[in-house]
């Protein structure tokens, strides 16, 4: 009747299997498909990712050179990263942390020209020095 007892007693002495999650986080594995980023400087705005994405979370405005992604619609399949011809898309090994607000990632790039213009303008307001990414809280779910 008490065949579980050895397991129970063993659990009392060996290390716990759970961890205090937000405080203590396990090292991610090397090849994990985590949060999606676009290295906008290398992006050529070809629109391949928009066509290939199975969840249609990416929009590319070829004329205005704006790359938009709805991270909440992204399913982390990595198809866009695999097919990106300019290798500008990449995934970090960390997952996006939970948030209470809906955000849309919108990045403004430069059209590919012979002479590389260093300065880039943000789409609207909040011009960040690095021009990395801009989050519009409560942005319109454009997808």
């Amino acid at each position: 009747m008490f065949r579980m007892t050895p397991n129970i007693v063993r659990n009392l002495v060996v290390r716990k299997s759970t961890r205090m999650y937000p405080v203590e986080v396990r090292e991610p594995f090397a090849q994990v498909r985590g949060e999606l980023f676009n290295d906008i400087e290398r992006c050529i705005f070809c629109g391949t990712c928009e066509v290939k994405c199975p969840s249609q979370c990416i929009q590319v405005d070829k004329k205005a050179c704006i790359w938009t992604c709805d991270p909440f619609a992204c399913v982390f399949c990595g198809v866009c990263v695999d097919t990106c011809p300019a290798k500008s898309l990449y995934q970090k090994t960390k997952y996006r942390s939970p948030t209470g607000e809906r955000i849309i990632i919108s990045q403004q790039g430069q059209p590919r020209k012979k002479d590389k213009a260093k300065d880039r303008a943000g789409e609207s307001g909040t011009p960040k020095g690095s021009g990395e990414e801009k989050a519009d809280p409560g942005g319109d779910p454009a997808t």
């Binding site: 129970i8 659990n11 009392l12 060996v14 716990k16 299997s17 759970t18 961890r19």
Partner: peptide, 12 residues
């Protein structure tokens, strides 16, 4: 009780 149960199940 809850702590002891958790320990027996290998939880914190």
């Amino acid at each position: 009780d809850r702590i002891l149960t958790a320990r027996m199940q290998s939880r914190i």
